[in-house]
Design a protein around this nucleic acid. Structure first.
Lengths: 195, 195, 195, 195
DNA sequence: TATGAATGAGCCTTCATTCAT
DNA sequence: GATGAATGAAGGCTCATTCAT
């Protein structure tokens, strides 16, 4: 198992193929053709077809979470952090619509049928959001009585739905243009009354 | 002479089977067994396996939207309407977790791969939410400058994510208990400043 | 099992259906629809689908042979008898092209796969031809050294091929117009030299 | 890298299987077993089960016609050519009775139901016979007023019927022994009177 | 390591036949 | 007798996976 680029090439090919036809309607040989290799070669790097999807999720989500974490770390202000998260979420989707299609569409299948293999990475994303909200509470910018877990899921769900609509729709507008509106509504919803 | 209850029985069986193993991992014969009929019988009422899923979506979403519409119609106050929608959304999921699993998990697949067969019914749900928001604006209860389409998607996404977490999770709490918190955050986010 | 017309109606419907799509591509329900009855009713008169085909062959061939026998009996002259046989063969096909299609196309399948169920009737036809040839030899009109069985098969084969071409082709000409040419060539081939 | 002998092996296996049970009563897995391969392998070389039969017809008929053409070309005399054709026709059947069974029995089905896929090759055989007859007319050996198309069909039909009887019968005699009798009768039937 | 031909389990769908009405 | 809904065995075809080269 020498070539260290192959797994990444295969995953990138899989993203494109899955985006096009979905996991269950894609054949391993489609991924191989897209990657420019023989289908047998895939099995030198992945155990099964499922394994490709699971690894894909893990890698992409890990990358994503890492970049969100980094972005957030560079910003001291909790309110601004939320705005950054929304903007980055939409930017990632906008720049990688194929990845978006796969993640948006297949993730729920994945959560259910692939043993929560990507659970760690997904919940890491939730953790980032939740941590920022808690920071905001500590800073007095966010309501003390906020049910943080609920608010976390709401923000994620809101972003996810905007992204899904855009990805599966006509993409006639720039998704990132919606970022501020989304952040504003959410922040208004969770902020301390006096702010 | 053809049994008018059969299609419903088959759909109900399909909901249970799809909830358990997902559309692509379910066999037609599984649905037949669950429905207590022979597999050939299914083809007297549905053209293909796909047709079962599409019909399932259409029927269940149509029912759902109808009940939401009815609930909303009985309430004059736009703010209260939003609260009712959230409560009903969670109540439906809580009382039909299997339906929830199918709709939550398969719907996105469906939106993408089944010719948007359920698109009409899904967008009808969005329409209900949007109409209530516009009513709220007209009544001065909701910000005049709100981007209504964005807010609609946000509310749907928030509810959907809460529901998904609950359905795929341990269900250790009552989903409906989260309804007021969700509605409150959302309403605070969109309401007129003076309110 | 009362209605004495049903079996005939079913057979006639089967002739039309088999002519259209062939035995193996026809469904029992197609025959039922064509006959204007329910598919279950067929099983009151026939044991299996095979039974329909076998009975069809037997009846139609028996009718055919009977009419050939009658026609031949009315003609004292052996040479004229041969001409009559050819003319009648082509007339039957021309007037019942659907029957022709079934008999021509399916008969060989039948000979092979349906236990020679129609063997008796088919060989009865051969017997008629052979008897006429032997009559011709006795009358000195046909070569004494003729291999009668071979000549019988040749005449049948020749008529059968002309009929098949016509039935499966465009039918742009009248098949009976070819009868005399066929008879003439055959008779010249088998007649006594001095004639 | 794909084995270039496989298609031929599959066709040969198919000939044996179809001869035994007929096209419609044969399963693809039967052909695979007869060919000593897995059933999926067949689909690497043929698109559908139909495709096997059509290809089989085309190949075998093309081979047949080529050998007839060659045989005929080596003989200058038109009368002798006819005798050669009959002898070769019977020889092919006698040496390949299984092929004979398939061609004789299934060909008519094929003509009707497989889009006339073998039409070109079959009519090429007719063309060879017809050309020889026209040659005979030009050489003054065959009647000038002969309806060539009818005579062509008659000869083919006669040979075909002899072959069918032999193939489907007990094969208690040598088919080639009948060749001269058949040729003689036919030639006497079509030859110029003075000959 | 890479290949891709070969494998064969698996599944959707059809349709001859049955049987309750 | 007549119906046609129900049955379930059967089979063509797909495709993830293996393995000889």
């Amino acid at each position: 198992m020498r070539d260290p680029d192959k797994p990444q090439q295969i995953i990138d090919a899989a993203v494109r193929v899955f985006a096009r036809t979905g996991y269950y309607n894609s054949r391993v040989s489609d991924i191989a053709r897209e990657a420019g290799i023989a289908s047998g070669t895939i099995y030198l790097y992945f155990r099964t077809k499922d394994d490709i999807l699971v690894t894909l999720f893990r890698h992409k989500m890990a990358e994503w979470v890492a970049s969100v974490r980094k972005e957030v770390a560079g910003e001291p202000e909790p309110i601004a952090k939320i705005r950054k998260i929304v903007r980055l979420h939409f930017k990632v989707i906008e720049e990688n619509p194929e990845l978006g299609e796969v993640v948006q569409v297949e993730l729920r299948q994945g959560q259910k049928f692939f043993r929560g293999a990507s659970a760690r990475e997904v919940s890491a994303y939730f953790d980032v959001i939740q941590a920022v909200l808690e920071e905001g509470i500590a800073a007095g910018r966010i309501r003390r009585d906020l049910h943080v877990k609920i608010a976390t899921k709401m923000l994620f769900g809101a972003m996810d739905q905007l992204a899904t609509s855009w990805v599966l729709g006509k993409r006639a507008y720039r998704l990132t243009d919606a970022a501020d509106a989304v952040a504003t509504i959410f922040l208004k919803g969770v902020s301390s009354d006096g702010v």
